[in-house]
């Protein structure tokens, strides 16, 4: 790389450390938030014993997970069994690198930032597969099979929606995409590309295995899906990766559609975080509202609605871009 210098190395390392801390902190905050939202929606207070309003509950959970024994089912393929959680978590740190939290807080701003995120998020699917297969458990296998057919399917409309935005801005650099949007809501991409935003937002539920599309982990059918056999930190890594992915897709949505760190006044990373957390809240709200979709519904929605709509949207975008 020609712009490679000590300064780049420095920002990369500091960015990585900061991102790992950000992921862990976020996961804890999100678990607490998820429980609170779940509680409030079910008209109960949620965790409220540990610390003010129960904020320390996630810390207690993390400590519990750290001290749990790591078990491996007999006849499980030990190498792959322990490789899978690591494989699931390791790309996550990389995925946060190109996110433009603010003009200053961007660990690494390559021209292909968007592509990097899309490329490395595919590794998570692989980890799910390996985990499901190596557990030597039917539930895990079913969970993995469902997870993969769902993730592979929903990646396509997601890509189409993202592509429409990239088309519109002529770049794959997230910072530049944010740069080209304005601070007020009507200057955001969600205003010019509402359909792409809708498709993206529906697809991320399928991508991150969140309810109502949480079939890979459907408790009532598959115990815990692909991570049934994982205990202690093995489970914790999957969990962390899942929440990190949730944050990631919401952050990408913020950068692509909601103007990133730009706000009506006082531009900065607080706008970025506020918007991302707003999206995360909607994801939780949806999760605790709708029942789980049946699998054929899930795939029908994807192949019969989102995919054609996404393709049409892309075509329309291309047409408009060519015309004006």
């Amino acid at each position: 790389m020609n712009e490679f210098s000590l300064w780049t190395v420095f920002t990369l390392v500091v960015g990585l450390v900061a991102i790992l801390a950000f992921i862990a902190g976020n996961a804890m905050a999100l678990v607490w938030m998820e429980r609170k939202v779940a509680g409030f929606i079910q008209r109960r207070p949620g965790p409220n014993q540990l610390g003010p309003a129960g904020v320390l509950q996630s810390v207690a959970d993390a400590v519990k997970l750290l001290f749990k024994q790591i078990l491996k089912p007999s006849n499980a393929d030990s190498i792959i069994f322990f490789l899978a959680p690591i494989l699931s978590f390791f790309p996550v740190a990389l995925l946060f690198m190109p996110l433009p939290f603010s003009p200053f807080f961007t660990a690494y701003s390559p021209n292909l930032g968007l592509l990097l995120i899309l490329a490395f998020s595919g590794i998570n699917v692989l980890a799910v597969l390996l985990a499901g297969w190596s557990s030597n458990n039917k539930y895990s296998l079913y969970g993995a099979a469902r997870g993969v057919s769902q993730s592979v399917a929903y990646e396509i409309p997601l890509l189409l929606a993202v592509l429409a935005i990239a088309f519109q801005h002529g770049t794959l650099n997230l910072s530049e995409i944010v740069e080209q949007q304005g601070g007020w809501p009507w200057q955001w991409n969600v205003f010019t590309q509402p359909l792409a935003f809708l498709i993206y937002f529906i697809s991320i539920f399928g991508e991150t295995n969140r309810s109502p599309f949480d079939l890979p982990e459907a408790e009532s059918e598959l115990t815990a899906g692909f991570h049934t056999e994982y205990s202690g930190m093995g489970f914790a890594l999957f969990f962390l990766a899942e929440y990190a992915n949730m944050v990631l897709v919401c952050c990408v949505a913020t950068a692509l559609f909601l103007g990133g760190w730009k706000g009506p006044f006082l531009d900065g990373f607080w706008w970025f975080l506020a918007k991302a957390y707003g999206l995360l809240f909607i994801m939780m709200w949806v999760r605790w509202t709708y029942p789980r979709a049946r699998f054929d519904m899930l795939l029908n929605l994807n192949w019969k609605w989102l995919l054609p709509l996404g393709a049409l949207n892309l075509l329309a975008t291309a047409f408009v871009m060519k015309l004006f």
């Binding site: 595919g122 590794i123 699917v125 297969w133 993969v148």
Partner: peptide, 20 residues
């Protein structure tokens, strides 16, 4: 990135799907 996206993310996953 294309190598990752297409080969690791999609084709390998589909191959493994059959293997599984």
């Amino acid at each position: 990135f294309m190598q990752l996206l297409i080969y690791v993310g999609a084709i390998c996953v589909l191959i493994f799907f059959a293997l599984m």
